[in-house]
Design a protein around this nucleic acid. Structure first.
Lengths: 147, 147
DNA sequence: TCTCGAAATGAGAATGGTTCTCATTCGCAT
DNA sequence: ATGCGAATGAGAACCATTCTCATTTCGAGA
């Protein structure tokens, strides 16, 4: 299990390799995402850190962390940006989104199944002359709490 | 191969079952999406139809068609909404997005592979106590034109 | 065919997430 | 200590999308 200090150290060296610093704001955002079980919006993060970082700075912080590939950004179903630690920090995973409560949580597909997914994806890429560099698998459904 | 008239007829009956009409604007949008090979943004559609529908009406049209499940909406990687005909009209498919040019195109995963995907997805759902109702598989990579 | 009411439209204002500007502050390397 | 690029904060600006409301269109019934 990766420790928080590992994440911060890895993030710091990634940032420094791009002449950016691990500032208090950036550290706070990284720690927040490291403690979350699913992708967080800027507003989510602001709530978690109790507004410790003004929105304009928070967005800029998120942009910097995204550009340095410490975090990844993708829109949720409504188009609002959500962030999580980059996969090289967390490990490859996918998402399950509950169509009832809207919650999205991470899901690590078991290794054997993930291998099959990768195989399928590359077969499809080959068939359509598309050089696959990554994939995303989202499950929609109803979570256990909503049933 | 589904014909355009089939699509329009199916859309009309779907709309009428929800006391909505197949108006000229709605027909135009449906025909536009029917003639596209990938998801289109509101701006894309506006260009294709040469501004024949004012943006406020276009957005409302898209909302109505989405609510009646004639089309589906999902945000692209930048968070901008993109639309395409619902899967009950087009058949189940996935998307390939080129990380170089940004183009997204539809891809129908061959039946045997799709069956495996469905199997994997339901296994994962079972394992995580999540009642899967649908899935989305996005391939990222480089298209043949960009290589 | 005429009429009425519900549905649809168009123009423009309003919204809200996100980005930009710019003046100020911070922190590392001399 | 000093200087300079990096980082910050406040607020304005942006822009995709939604809302408002007055007007128009369509279709069912007279």
């Amino acid at each position: 299990m990766r420790q928080r200090n590992d994440t911060l150290a890895a993030a710091r060296s990634r940032l420094e390799s791009k002449q950016a610093r691990l500032t208090p704001a950036r550290r706070l955002v990284i720690e927040t995402l490291d403690g979350s079980s699913g992708p967080q919006s800027a507003a989510d993060i602001a709530v978690t850190i109790a507004g410790a970082i003004p929105m304009s700075s928070l967005y800029r912080t998120l942009t910097v962390l995204e550009e340095t590939e410490v975090i990844e950004r993708f829109p949720d179903q409504t188009g609002i940006a959500r962030y999580e630690l980059a996969e090289w920090l967390t490990g490859h995973h996918h998402h399950m989104t509950c169509i009832t409560c809207g919650a999205t949580s991470d899901v690590a597909v078991p290794g054997d199944l993930e291998a099959t997914v990768i195989d399928i994806v590359s077969q499809v890429g080959r068939r359509f002359d598309f050089e696959v560099t990554g994939h995303r698998l989202d499950l929609q459904g109803v979570c256990s709490q909503c049933r």
